[in-house]
Simulated scan of single mutants.
Amino acid sequence: MLIGVPKEIKNHEYRVGLTPASVRELCSRGNQVVVQKDAGKAIGLHDEQYVAAGASIVDSAEEVYGRADMIVKVKEPQPAECAMLREGQILYTYLHLAPDPEQCAALMKSGAVCIAYETITGPGGGLPLLAPMSEVAGRMSIQAGAAHLEKSKGGMGILLGGVPGVAPAHVVIIGAGVVGTNALQMAVGSGARVTVLDKNVDRLRQLDLVYGNRIVTQYSSAQSIEEAVLSAELVIGGVLIPGAAAPKLVTRRLISRMKQGAVVVDVAIDQGGCFETSSATTHAEPTYVLDGVVHYCVANMPGAVARTSTFALNNATICHAAALAEKGWKEAIKDNAHLKNGLNVCLGKVTYEAVARELGHDYVPAKDMLH
């Protein structure tokens, strides 16, 4: 199969779909790979390294899309990229369709076979292709929150860990999944006072065993969220419903009652966000202030540490890329129920139930597209 790797064009997005090591893996299996010129240059992955791994370098995205049987990306295709997709072409990338009806419509119109990293499941449960970026985003959320608590960046002017004789900041983490757990590690390490909320009591029990009295665990309810958020200097939102829009757990009214200069970091913004006041921002302008509260809602947080993120992502995505290239999408999906869960849009049909429900499209089960 001929596999294409375009350069990402989203604002401040420097990740790349395949590393030279991944290209080598695919080429060793008899595939061909074309990479757009300078696709990985910003993170130190140069064209010469791709050529040495077996790829060909082409000048334009149009040539990548025009020649490739499968496109491997990182972020969801922008409108200009959707327009270059063609019927039957495989698109393998993050999509996050539930809050993005325009993208969904464009992908349906293209007739492409669109496989979303974020809904592919794993043998042990969970979302293994989303997990590495959730790990990065969870850890970054504390970095970003700490920085924006500084007065010069709009915050109240508080040091996350405090100093002897001065209380640390109170960090509240909503959701104890991959994002929340990684945020928790960083927050505890900083010396902050940390509260984590989740509806999964078994998960809270696990965290309590690890961290003991260094954290407070609370069952997530409207009451416990309100109490925690009102006492917080930094709130991390990390709640995910696979493929669906994130639930709005913190209301506009609650935001308006928070401490002035407090910071909220919405890691769920790719799926619409879990704060009612959240609107997607970019690395160029990462924050805005609403009701005196600093909102950090960057939709591609891991792009800020693009080299780390690219390698972490490739570790998770290469196995399915190799299967798709070797077998074609139909056989690869027939052979792997977890990969089948990644099929979101196929030949003009929406094949992921949560996306169809959120956006009002007819749902066609993935198995029905395999005849």
Rank of each mutant, 00 (worst) to 15 (best):
M301F: 08
V305K: 02
A312K: 15
M301H: 03
S309L: 06
V298M: 14
M301K: 00
N300P: 06
A312D: 12
H283M: 14
V298L: 11
N314D: 11
A299C: 11
V305L: 15
H320K: 15
T317V: 14
K327C: 07
A304F: 08
A322G: 06
V305N: 04
L313R: 00
H295P: 07
L324F: 08
V293N: 03
K330W: 07
G303M: 12
C319F: 01
V298K: 10
A316Q: 03
F311K: 08
N315V: 07
P302K: 11
A306Q: 05
F311P: 11
T282F: 09
N300R: 09
P286H: 06
H295T: 15
Y288A: 13
R307D: 05
T310R: 07
N315P: 12
V298H: 08
A306E: 06
G292F: 15
T287N: 05
C319S: 15
A321C: 13
A325E: 01
T282N: 09
E326H: 07
L290K: 08
N314C: 12
G292Y: 15
T317I: 14
P302R: 05
T287Y: 11
A299V: 14
P302S: 05
W329E: 01
T317E: 13
N314H: 07
N315E: 15
R307L: 10
A322Y: 03
A321M: 03
A316F: 00
A306C: 12
W329R: 00
C297M: 08
H295C: 05
L324K: 06
A299P: 01
V294A: 05
C319W: 01
E326G: 02
V289N: 05
A304C: 09
A312M: 15
N315S: 13
A304L: 11
H320M: 14
P302H: 06
H283I: 14
Y296R: 02
F311A: 12
K330C: 04
A299D: 05
H320E: 15
A323I: 01
V298G: 10
A304G: 13
G303A: 10
A284Q: 15
D291C: 01
A299R: 11
F311H: 14
A321D: 04
A323V: 00
N315G: 08
S309K: 03
R307C: 11
S309W: 00
Y296A: 01
K327W: 04
T317M: 09
P286Q: 12
L290W: 07
H283A: 14
